[in-house]
Design a protein around this nucleic acid. Structure first.
Lengths: 241, 241
DNA sequence: CGTTCTCTTGAGATCCCTCAACACCTGTGG
DNA sequence: CCACAGGTGTTGAGGGATCTCAAGAGAACG
């Protein structure tokens, strides 16, 4: 399950390791960044492009922002999605290494890059929060690396749906319904597949009874735990159904 | 080109963005961690396993350490390689989310997890250095995501060789020779391929004259810039040679 | 009721995987 | 010196998962 967007939400109760020993970081990051002006971004607008000078980091207030990279011939790989509470643009280079595009109408707050260093030095809680969120993002990206490198198309899709379902499920609940925030081509570019393969695997999942499509973008999952188990190799997920 | 291992090496001269405005972080991280005892790890020994309690973060002094994740049926994805100067174990969970194994005889220093929080709060430069290195690791992982999701087997291998070559090349040099630190099966698990596909693509690269294999693990590259261009889609890298 | 965008489905091609055999190297022991 | 074994790398044949190309079905919208 992806961890993104829990950084500012999840209280540091269950976890006992370093830089989570209290919740100062949440309020600290919130305080620093909430003094900035809100910026409204409409769907498909870009927050920044690869190669542009790095000027700000962003906190997503509402909406969904995706980061992606391109190859010279146009092949696209979506790297991550930032939901409310997630940050964007924590990079260590002069110029951006990827593109950030709003996938829905979005509101963000931001801090100028040149202020960040001061905040880190003056408010250690800020640096700790930033580090924690970056570490979570790294963990998510590695999980995605496992999916892209070693999972089949069916497993990739199940993993993707399972992640979204977990995000939309309250504890213990097993029935979930949600709207897919993405088009098939975006899912494809996130999972390293083609639109057609994504669509075919949706059809197969539907036929096998694991999911129900109320509309092409409205998913109903009867048993989230089953889906979660399938995503992690616990059940049969091969294409031979 | 991968950025790993430059965090402690590269002076912050060329880059002008936040938390690189001076080089304090280098010495600060070094000072904190160099007071710890060196630990010697022999090849194939593990630094930690997925699921174990998170207890320390490590700084690689010499050798190569790889991190990897496994699926239930044994499929493996190598996530990253840590070279001298790189850190390992910056995670934000109670338990490790991946495995760390020495790929050669290795020396590491480490800091206990419960000390890290204090260091961050008391020495902001330490937190900044940690953040910078984690951000670099994230950037590398995203680059690998692009390779796994959208590149062909040939392009993946070229990218891999190009990264190693860049690491072993002094500025402006175009002829490089180096020892591959990995077996074919490790390269395969890093690139999301099988051993056979890796081997076949080595043969093709050899046949096309781009590389020379002095032995099966000794690579000679005549034109690093060409290789680098091929890795980024600048040249023809398809399988139809 | 067209137009456009998106999603689905089919047919064929192809890249990569699987399975299998062989080559190479090194160390061991007769 | 040779035989053998184990680990590693290479090569071949065949199959299958995914891609490419193409057409049609839905849905949204003016």
């Amino acid at each position: 399950m992806q961890l993104v967007s829990q950084a500012l939400v999840e209280p540091a109760s269950a976890v006992s390791s370093w830089f989570q020993s209290d919740t100062v970081h949440t309020s600290t990051l919130g305080k620093s960044i909430s003094s900035s002006v809100e910026r409204h971004i409409i769907a498909h607008e870009h927050l920044y492009f690869e190669g542009e000078l790095h000027s700000r980091i962003y906190l997503v207030i509402s909406g969904v922002v995706g980061t992606y990279k391109l190859l010279a011939d146009g092949r696209r790989q979506i790297c991550s999605f930032a939901y409310p509470g997630d940050i964007l643009g924590v990079e260590c280079t002069e110029r951006h290494l990827n593109n950030a595009e709003a996938f829905s109408d979005t509101v963000v707050r931001s801090i100028a890059s040149n202020e960040i260093d001061k905040l880190i030095m003056n408010e250690p809680g800020f640096g700790r929060a930033l580090l924690r969120m970056t570490a979570i993002e790294l963990a998510n990206t590695r999980e995605q690396l496992l999916a892209l490198g070693r999972k089949t198309a069916a497993e990739k899709l199940i993993t993707f749906l399972s992640d979204i379902a977990c995000r939309n499920t309250s504890k213990g609940q097993s029935l979930v319904q949600f709207e897919l925030p993405l088009k098939r081509c975006d899912i494809a570019d996130y999972l390293g597949l083609t639109v057609e393969t994504v669509s075919r695997n949706f059809t197969r999942l539907k036929a096998s009874g694991v999911i129900t499509l109320l509309s092409s973008n409205t998913i109903l999952i009867k048993d989230v735990n089953l889906l979660y188990a399938m995503a992690h190799g616990g059940e049969h997920t091969g294409p031979h159904d």
